[in-house]
């Protein structure tokens, strides 16, 4: 079945997977510590928050938009949540904390949706504005201090491990339960994009907004959902980040949005909309995390990290374009004007 094989090569997920495999084999051969359980658990741990953000960014990019405000939403939601809980002396389960943070995220996301849908403003500009506004609001009116004494449930969450172990030289390592949140969010987003009418509408919107409207989708409803959903995921990511780092730092996260967008784009989502998948995005997240992690294992100073991510992003975006150019079919002269 040569066509099946060709299809596989055309699939972005396959190419990213191959790159990851190559990278792993290379790093593993240089430093065998790469394949050790502590390192693998470490990779997973670093993927959790990046991955949750990336899922939200994926949904926006598939719809043909771009969102740079989700880190600001995450910080604002987690900080307000933490402050509220401390003020109330909350001692209940983690679930309610999550819900609170997610609802705040939802409200902030809907602010984005309002401007995008009602005024039909470019998504990049709106989210730049809200990013600045949300962060400014947080630091100016809510607080700008680190909070290191967190509610009990959050501390407990950070200590919740699925697996624990001790290396021969006595170092503890563990697989945090937080990865379940990533998997859950990924599963839900995957099913949503693939099996719900809403998900198909998101792809339709990204493919051709005019056609989507003609077919009968309500664009504003889809947009409200998209930006609301990103807000929810941002709230979730923010509270998990805070719990895992055991500190609510209002200066955190903002600035990492470009990393997230890089991961999504590397995972095969097209910035022009309509294309992208959850498995691809997870692979993209994996690639970015492994890349950062492997530099250390390869003995490359950590300050090379950004250069590596930059090169990776450029190569990752240039490669499909250049590949497509060489594959360009001969009947390109055909008239396809309307």
């Amino acid at each position: 079945m040569p066509s099946r094989w060709n299809m596989l090569w055309k699939k972005n997920e396959f190419l990213v997977g191959l790159t990851i495999l190559g990278l792993c084999l290379f790093v593993g051969s240089v430093n065998s510590a790469f394949w050790s359980l502590p390192n693998l658990f470490d990779l997973l741990r670093s993927s959790v928050v990046l991955g949750i953000f990336a899922l939200g960014a994926l949904v926006v990019i598939v719809s043909g938009g771009i969102d740079v405000s989700f880190t600001a939403v995450a910080v604002l939601s987690m900080y307000i949540t933490t402050k509220l809980l401390l003020a109330w002396g909350y001692a209940g389960p983690f679930l309610w904390i999550c819900l609170l943070s997610c609802s705040i995220g939802l409200c902030l996301g809907l602010v984005n949706a309002l401007f995008i849908s009602a005024f039909r403003l470019p998504t990049l500009i709106v989210t730049l504005g809200t990013m600045s506004a949300f962060r400014g609001f947080l630091l100016a009116f809510i607080g700008s201090n680190h909070i290191s004494v967190l509610p009990q449930a959050m501390v407990a969450f950070s200590q919740w491990d699925l697996l624990r172990g001790r290396t021969p030289d006595g170092v503890l390592y563990s697989l945090p339960g937080a990865v379940l949140f990533l998997f859950g969010a990924a599963l839900f987003t995957w099913a949503l994009l693939r099996y719900s009418m809403l998900g198909r509408g998101i792809y339709a919107l990204g493919g051709d907004a005019v056609a989507a409207e003609r077919v009968g989708f309500s664009l504003s409803r889809i947009q409200f959902f998209i930006y609301g959903y990103v807000g929810v995921l941002a709230g979730l990511g923010g509270i998990i980040h805070t719990s895992l780092s055991r500190m609510a730092n209002p200066f955190d996260l903002v600035g990492t949005e470009m990393n997230v967008l890089a991961a999504v784009v590397l995972g095969g989502a097209r910035i022009t909309g309509g294309h992208g998948s959850v498995p691809g995005t997870l692979l993209g997240v994996g690639l970015v995390v492994i890349m950062n992690n492997s530099l250390i294992l390869l003995g490359v100073p950590s300050y090379w990290q950004r250069v590596a991510v930059g090169l990776l992003l450029l190569a990752g975006t240039a490669a499909p374009i250049l590949l497509a150019r060489t594959r360009k079919r001969p009947h390109a002269g055909e008239e396809e004007r309307s």
Binding site: S132, F134, G136, F137, L138, A140
Partner: peptide, 8 residues
């Protein structure tokens, strides 16, 4: 920081 807020 309020500057950031107002700018946005």
């Amino acid at each position: 920081f309020s500057k950031e807020f107002v700018w946005g």
